[in-house]
Nucleic acid binder design. Structure first.
Length: 357
DNA sequence: GTATGCTTTCGGC
DNA sequence: TTACGGCCGAAAGCATAC
């Protein structure tokens, strides 16, 4: 099953201040450029009725809510994380195996706990909803299905506070009428491409020739789409280990090509990342610079070292060098600057090398 | 021809 | 007509090794 926390950031704000409950709430990431510059992270369902959606500009959200008494709040991630951690530890108790996805979603394999019965799984899901509501005052939506792919789509089917069970023999008829963008991995670009091929629903996709899918989307994706449309998925529910990358990105006060301004921002981002990772004893070998230009296009350059980056200076200098390259390859001004590190390894007391013998 | 690793872009939340 | 964050993982695309 998939457990999805309803409009999570905005619901956390309702929990913190219940008097806001009946008003539109919009949780925002402010960029600090102008008073209202930035994007909507999450809105509660009252705000969604007015057309407010995740990712839209705060400016547009304000216009949609101009006539009503709406609340705009900045994201308070550490507060949401605390609630999230509490809910996740409740969920673990119900699962044979558990897989957290982001801050507000988790897959639970309950095959054994439910004795392989979907009726049992449904009762389990209801108990989870009740316990999370009574202990954390948060509603969740749950999808139960024969695998992760179906469970995810089922959870999306009825929200908020919804429970949808799709048994194996119902899978095909459940999926067939749904639009293709409900499938994980099918976003705006892919669905546009599929529509030119005459594919609008998951049913259309399931009837489409596999070889033609592969010709259009490549072997990996083409094969995946074919099986996904049939509701087939054998990926296991398994705990994700350490993150594979850590990044920081920040919007500059104004679009600029001023190297001093950009380098200044980069230094701060590098320090933040380096301090965090070295405290956790994590080393990294790959360093990337990310630039979002005036036209919103995203560009990146990276460099991988043979050994872990030994100090903050090397990190900062490398990112600066990569950024110089990015600036040199465009005439446009830079809007946002970012740093990413990956290629992790845990720090050893002392690495033994061949030369030690 | 296959396996593997690195760089860059894409998509989800 | 515009407006527009900050992350993450996955996959494509390419190069290299065998």
């Amino acid at each position: 099953m998939l457990v999805d926390f309803d409009y999570f950031f905005a619901q956390c704000e309702e929990k913190r201040n219940p008097s806001l409950k009946d008003q539109p709430i919009v949780v925002c990431v402010y960029s600090g450029r102008t008073e209202d510059s930035g994007a909507v992270s999450t809105a509660n369902y009252v705000a969604r009725k007015y057309g407010v959606k995740s990712g839209m500009s705060i400016f547009l959200a304000k216009r949609k809510l101009a006539e009503v008494n709406a609340v705009f709040l900045p994201v308070d991630r550490s507060f949401y994380e605390e609630t999230s951690n509490n809910i996740m530890s409740i969920l673990r108790h119900y699962a044979d195996s558990f897989e957290q996805v982001g801050i507000d979603e988790a897959y639970l394999d309950v095959t054994e706990k439910a004795n392989g019965s979907f009726k049992e799984a449904q009762r389990l899901a209801q108990r989870i909803m009740d316990e999370v509501k009574s202990r954390e005052k948060i509603t969740v939506s749950i999808g139960v299905g024969p695998n992760k792919l179906v469970a995810k789509i089922a959870a999306d089917f009825k929200k908020p506070n919804g429970l949808t069970v799709v048994e194996p023999q119902q899978t095909e008829s459940f999926l067939a009428p749904l639009p293709i963008d409900r499938l994980f991995g099918v976003g705006k670009k892919t669905s546009e491409k599929m529509e030119t091929l005459g594919i609008k629903t998951i049913g259309d996709l399931s009837r489409f020739d596999v070889q033609k899918l592969i010709a259009n989307f490549g072997k990996t994706l083409g094969t995946y789409f074919h099986y996904a449309a049939l509701g087939l998925d054998d990926s296991p529910v398994s705990e994700k280990g350490m993150a594979q990358s850590v990044s920081r990105i920040s919007t500059l006060r104004e679009d600029t090509r001023d190297v001093a301004v950009i380098m200044n921002k980069i230094e701060t981002l590098c320090e933040d990342i380096y301090i965090n990772l070295s405290q956790m004893g994590i080393e990294f070998k790959t360093v990337s610079a990310v630039a979002v230009l005036k036209d919103m296009s995203v560009h990146s350059r990276s460099r991988t070292f043979e050994n872990p980056v030994p100090n903050l200076e090397l990190l900062t200098n490398t990112v600066k060098e990569l950024f110089h390259r990015l600036i040199g390859e465009t005439n446009l001004e830079i809007r946002r600057a970012g740093v990413k590190v990956s290629g992790f390894s845990e720090k050893h007391e002392k690495q033994r090398r061949l030369t030690d013998f």
